[in-house]
Design a protein around this nucleic acid. Sequence first.
DNA 1: GATCATAGTCGTCTGCCTGACGATAAACAC
DNA 2: GTGTTTATCGTCAGGCAGACGACTATGATC
Lengths: 252, 252
Amino acid sequence: MPYDPSAYPPFAVTVDLVVLTVRRHALCALTVRRGEQPFQGRWALPGGFVRADEDLAQAAARELSEETGLTAHDPSVPAQDNGAHLEQLATYGDPKRDPRMRVVSVAHLALAPDLPAPRPGGDANSARWAPVEELLAQGGYGRDGEPVAPLAFDHAQILADGVERARSKIEYSSLATAFCPPEFTVGELRRVYEAVWGVALDPRNFHRKVTGTPGFLVPTGGTTTRQGGRPAQLFRAGGATLLNPPMLRPEV
Amino acid sequence: MPYDPSAYPPFAVTVDLVVLTVRRHALCALTVRRGEQPFQGRWALPGGFVRADEDLAQAAARELSEETGLTAHDPSVPAQDNGAHLEQLATYGDPKRDPRMRVVSVAHLALAPDLPAPRPGGDANSARWAPVEELLAQGGYGRDGEPVAPLAFDHAQILADGVERARSKIEYSSLATAFCPPEFTVGELRRVYEAVWGVALDPRNFHRKVTGTPGFLVPTGGTTTRQGGRPAQLFRAGGATLLNPPMLRPEV
DNA sequence: GATCATAGTCGTCTGCCTGACGATAAACAC
DNA sequence: GTGTTTATCGTCAGGCAGACGACTATGATC
């Protein structure tokens, strides 16, 4: 198989982002409204072309910053504030996924704490956080009864894969803290798990589990009552990244 | 961000394969000798360009077939014979990973049973199964005392990622059976786990665990003594793909 | 201020799973 | 027959998770 660099088929390479957060007890994804054909006016995942001198991770971090203002965590620096977790998800390269030309998209998954407001690009109507439940309800209806158009391109599949990755990854890693602000309570962390998994968890067993896992949570000393009820201890994420034994997602 | 299809930077897209098998109690990977610059004469992972009308998975399956004669399992058809497991691993796109041009490589992971002989391409000296331990021993020495040159390009990183994926995936899935022939004994399956993880497992506890997990193994009724000792029951892989609870990799 | 609702935290109990390991079974080599 | 090898069954103790009772500390309401 002789290697002829001039004979390779030309591709465009993009990065698409599945940016997840937890808002009002629901797992939400960032979507942007497409301004051009194809799929004009439809919602899509944010993304863009990889530049000629850019690594894939750099391109994903740049797109994330452009769309949300978030900076990506450097994985080598564990306990960082004000940043999102960013990792490569999978690559999608069906020849017909973009009708215009051959585009291979390297999807990335970002997990972010709840942001004050969707500030993407400055354009008001062009971006929003939408519950993944609505986005993935194919041909269904949103919470307000409006019919929901499916996402552009193969973005519904990409989103589904990203959500599944997030759901399984918070089982055996401490990634759920990426959805939380720098300081958070055990109850807030539990509501993250409940929103991502879509189940109810026993507060007592959850508390025992997360406080008993070494390196998962570090108490800051402070307390808060922002959730109402008895004041709760505040924690920061500990250094541990892998939970052993893992959190178990309830069956059924 | 206006979308200008004529302004995208041109990329070449390839698939690279991490093909793993278990031979003589060791986890081995398929490597091919490079015939051209750069890295001429060095060992590399098999791979090649994605064709213009090909899906990424199709390209990976085609390369796998060309190099090994294996056909890839269709994941939608569970209990298939004479095929390898094939899944996407990750995508590598550092701008400098190929000195000639911008190449993005979508790496795939294939798990295959021990093959009679490496029959890649027909060229004798151009391909071999090598223990991953030797391939990843950076600047180390192989089993025969010969110094080992590291793999070409970033293939050592790709191989390491593939091995780690395989090691973690046999924990919670039934994928270890992909390393076994269609019918196999509990002891043979245990040796697969031992080779992939590089640890020794208790035969009695292992036997209890795998035979007690519903859907993992289906007895065929036959027995064999091909491993010596008392005849062992033969099994086929059951329909279950996820093991719950998982096999636990021993600590340290 | 008493009462209530809400959320957080600590304990107990039971069942399941795992790791350590003894014992037996069925083949082959000599 | 004896020894060696591998397979398979059993036992026991420790750890962890699910179910759930009890108590604590706030703010809201009357």
